[in-house]
Design a protein around this nucleic acid. Sequence first.
DNA 1: TATCCTCGTGTGACCGGTCACGTAACAGCG
DNA 2: CGCTGTTACGTGACCGGTCACACGAGGATA
Lengths: 341, 341
Amino acid sequence: MSDTDIPEATGRAPSIRDVARLAGVSYQTVSRVINNSPQLRPETAEKVRSAIAELKFVPNQAARALATSRSRLIGVLGPRATTHGVASMVQAVESAARAAGYRLTLTNLATSAPDDVRSSIDHLMQQGVEGLIAVAPQTRVLPILDELKLPVPVQIVSSTGVSTSHNDQAAGARAAVRHLIELGHTRILHIAGPRDWVEADHRMRGYLAEMDANDLSPRPPILGDWTAQFGFEAGIELLRTEDATAVFAGNDHMALGFMHAVRAIGRSVPEDISVVGFDDVPESAHLWPPLTTVRQDFVGIGTRAVTDLLTLLGESAGEGALVEPGHLRLIVRSSTAPPSR
Amino acid sequence: MSDTDIPEATGRAPSIRDVARLAGVSYQTVSRVINNSPQLRPETAEKVRSAIAELKFVPNQAARALATSRSRLIGVLGPRATTHGVASMVQAVESAARAAGYRLTLTNLATSAPDDVRSSIDHLMQQGVEGLIAVAPQTRVLPILDELKLPVPVQIVSSTGVSTSHNDQAAGARAAVRHLIELGHTRILHIAGPRDWVEADHRMRGYLAEMDANDLSPRPPILGDWTAQFGFEAGIELLRTEDATAVFAGNDHMALGFMHAVRAIGRSVPEDISVVGFDDVPESAHLWPPLTTVRQDFVGIGTRAVTDLLTLLGESAGEGALVEPGHLRLIVRSSTAPPSR
DNA sequence: TATCCTCGTGTGACCGGTCACGTAACAGCG
DNA sequence: CGCTGTTACGTGACCGGTCACACGAGGATA
């Protein structure tokens, strides 16, 4: 407001040198202020800060990245899915990353074909990401990730658990199947997720393991695509050919579609057939009948993936230490009951 | 493979000067190759390309952004919602942006409180985004966007339609309500979305307008939060106090919760009460009863938002011209029927 | 044969920060 | 009073690209 009303009518955005000139200091001092270096007289810092405010100066991240060779960018590789689980995990990743001062760049796989995967990863790498988070990757994505030998750390975040080590995912599936067994069911089917999803695989293995542990013979799982539509179609088919009293579906959507099929052929859940889902999407409590399912801590998993990745990046664990994501938990509602026959 | 097996054991990534040295040309020539300038002898280009391949050279985007003052970055401001609609739009935005050679950076609003919104937008601006896409913003976000006078173009993408001009959103709501009226319903309730969502507002207005146009007195809409849980609770309450034969819910989830409430008090859909939703999430066809709803072209809307933004950024419209997103369409299923009384 | 133009390529400066120093001013100390 | 150490700041080079321009070779033209 001293000499001109408009401090800078120019086209380009102000740089630290513009700020320095206005504040009457050197550009290095401005740099110190924006990095809050302790070695500054408070009055100097204040002068600079007001110059920054006056010019509406915003540090140029590209320049900073260039000078420091640190992009503070994390790439997210998401699947082509619009489910509650995936969206929750992505959001959790975003807020955790932002809280830690990292930016996020997002790509979604068009398909899981190797070329697509490679091109998505390329796109991320070209941006100079410092780390990669693969959200709920299909199994065929993993070998590609390996084979590419990326120069940055990669973290997998799936409901399988953050790292491949604690896959209590299978445990969740076993709990679901055990619940059915304890109710007295013996002829239990499994509608699984797509062949190439890690989650699908683990849940299927949980089903097989639990059946086996109880000396029940599992039926070969049907491989679906996570959609209610598939659950419906598979249900129509299965109910014609199989004589089962219970079904464990790989996710809530397929369970929903299956329940539709049960009704469509004039039978009912849980009187004629029990159904268990997986995920506990927010709608599951309100389906008809309310769905017994396995709840997951999507947010905890996503958050944990970021803290783990940051550790890999040599970031101090920081506040909050490492929070263990909540465990999988069986939620019993009314889609399951003892068999009537 | 000539002198050393490992072309470059060094720590830093190769730069155009490294490539130039290996190819025996100047760094400028390398720059021309990666920008495929036409003024190059094919053999020279080939030499450079093989050097690039050998060194696994990847252009540094930060340096490029710095030199050109173009970040080719688009910021996405998403709401805190994990719904199918939002996720679809974000994915559509992502693939359209990538196809046009832009990168994407993502932020999710923790809440719609002004400070949160400002901080999210700041975070995006600090990254030097060239444009902003606000996905399904709450109404209170819009004035903030205005007030901030951002130096970059902003595009809203909501099911309201891409720009504020073609909000056939209200038309979708009117079609839903008209459907109920044509079936013979007169006492029609509306469970709306949250007060501060643009979508909620438009759908509510559509409800009011259509009731009015048919000389029916609308009941004051209940403002919900998009969740099935709310639909359930509101249903329990409404069914006790109101004497209606039909309900138009602001989205499918609330409709689902409402149907749960209807059953919970021992009545049934559509015999005792008809229900219409909005969005047509993939599950709606498999609910019990299958839900009459209004389908939206989320992907079309998201894609269109990007092409519009790119036009604002002075990008040639490019191939594919401007595709008009599909219109809203009423999908009649079995949750609606003529009133029995 | 001198002049001009075009094509293909090289040179220096610059984008906006950061880093490693250099250097005044002032204190404490023997 | 000279020496060293610390504090608070300034200077030059550099990160890895792009841009404007320079320049030599060769063909067309006068």
